[in-house]
């Protein structure tokens, strides 16, 4: 009697294990399919829509005190672009560097680093949230993106601001990112040229990196070379609006 029960228990455990493995394998198979990740990805639109509705228009990311800053702000992703043109610019302290703004604008323009530094600036101590899960706090100084957009005058057809970067990956794909105008015109969206009162070092994206305080770290492109205003992101690189987006990450990284 007891023996029988133990056998049954063992059978049940085995059966549960087998079912578990089958389910896991099934889920892995679904993850590899074409249609299922797309279905799962539909949640992104819902998240974006709902977060937009519940967020007051100019809701600001929290700004912290000097004392709240991280002792070490981790560097992540590319920390020394393997790009000969970039390396020449870096060697000359980015004196020859110019930020180009083109695409769907009335007045395409170029800004040198010293010209950017002469524009109105914003300083903010904010928290950087990485998609991996960690957070770090630093003080950033830079020119609000809206200052630059006001100068180049976006055309009505422009829907996205695309950041083309200097850093290629191991197989030569360049980093890039894109945001919409809701975020582009947000007061905390800045092109930062200083971190913690120091000139932005190469590991953190010199000469400028984007700060987009209400989204995750991978949206905040480093080594920005060129800004392009477009009506669609479909034809840029993988067509998903960003380097990581082309590898399956969400375009909307508000969570």
């Amino acid at each position: 009697m007891i023996k029988k029960r133990i056998d049954r228990r063992r059978f049940m455990i085995r059966a549960a294990q087998a079912a578990g493995f089958l389910l896991l394998a099934g889920c892995d198979k679904l993850s590899q399919s074409e249609w299922f990740p797309r279905l799962l990805g539909s949640a992104e639109g819902l998240t974006r829509g709902v977060q937009r509705i519940v967020t007051p228009r100019k809701a600001m990311a929290r700004e912290y005190d000097e004392a709240d800053r991280s002792a070490v702000f981790p560097t992540n992703g590319n920390i020394d672009p393997k790009n000969p043109d970039y390396q020449v610019l870096a060697k000359n302290n980015f004196t020859g560097w110019k930020l180009t703004i083109s695409g769907l604008v009335e007045r395409p323009a170029e800004f040198s680093l010293s010209e950017l530094r002469l524009l109105p600036s914003r300083t903010q101590i904010t928290r950087h949230d990485c998609v991996e899960g960690w957070s770090a706090i630093a003080k950033w100084k830079g020119v609000p993106l809206s200052e630059i957009l006001n100068r180049v005058r976006p055309l009505p057809a422009a829907r996205y601001v695309v950041f083309h970067c200097a850093d290629p990956d191991e197989i030569g794909r360049n980093y890039y990112e894109s945001i919409d105008f809701d975020d582009a015109n947000h007061p905390q969206t800045i092109l930062a040229y200083e971190i913690n009162d120091q000139v932005l070092p190469i590991a953190h994206g010199a000469p400028i990196r984007l700060r987009l305080e209400r989204q995750l770290g991978y949206k905040m492109a480093k080594y920005v070379m060129r800004i392009e205003l477009v009506d669609s992101i479909d034809s840029i690189a993988g067509g998903n609006g960003g380097y990581w987006e082309d590898q399956g990450y969400e375009w909307y990284a508000g969570i």
């Binding site: 799962l40 990805g41 998240t47 969570i255």
Partner: peptide, 23 residues
């Protein structure tokens, strides 16, 4: 691996599963 979905390291796909089923 037996405790995670997907079983191998794949953050982007884990997030997709998580947020869809979170909703």
């Amino acid at each position: 691996a037996w405790a995670t979905l997907p079983s191998h390291q794949w953050l982007a796909m884990g997030r997709r599963w998580h947020f869809f089923f979170a909703w």
